[in-house]
């Protein structure tokens, strides 16, 4: 009888501890979204995304905001942390490679953070270069 009770208490304790650990790591200290390893929700050309944002920013926001998108297009400008594709798609990198990308067709993956009306630009952040096709 007593042994049964002890076994029960131990089982309950184990359950509680594992639930605690799960809550602690899975919820409180959940890893940030890792855009680099996420599968893209959309895959399209830069021109198509820009056209959709230019014609109806609200609708495009509801489709793409906060989503991981894979974009293909020609790099028109690049600086230390930024690559601009097709003049109006702004991609912010966390750590950018030293590859020369300018004027090349490139595929970039990033999180869409919205539309910038000042420059009519769509912005992506946490970008990574997926592949480069000259």
């Amino acid at each position: 009888m007593k042994r049964k009770k002890i076994a029960f208490v131990i089982a309950a304790l184990l359950l509680l501890v594992s639930a605690g650990i799960y809550f602690y790591y899975g919820f409180l200290f959940k890893e940030a979204r890792n855009i680099e390893s996420e599968m893209p929700d959309f895959s399209m050309t830069a021109t198509k995304l820009l056209n959709e944002y230019n014609s109806n920013p609200k609708k495009a926001d509801s489709l793409y905001l906060n989503k991981t998108i894979e974009i293909t297009g020609k790099v028109t400008k690049e600086t230390d942390s930024v690559v601009i594709i097709e003049n109006n798609l702004f991609c912010l990198f966390t750590n950018k490679t030293k590859d020369k990308l300018i004027n090349n067709n490139t595929t970039v993956k990033g999180k869409c953070i919205g539309y910038d009306e000042l420059f009519q630009e769509v912005k992506l952040d946490q970008c990574t270069i997926n592949k480069q096709n000259n």
């Binding site: 953070i113 919205g114 910038d116 000042l118 912005k123 952040d125």
Partner: peptide, 21 residues
């Protein structure tokens, strides 16, 4: 990745920041 524009002749200023950034 904050955008901002300053018109030098008038001093007009505009800045825009995307919250998700």
């Amino acid at each position: 990745s904050v955008s901002a524009v300053l018109e030098q002749s008038t001093g007009d200023f505009a800045a825009l920041v995307l919250i998700k950034g």
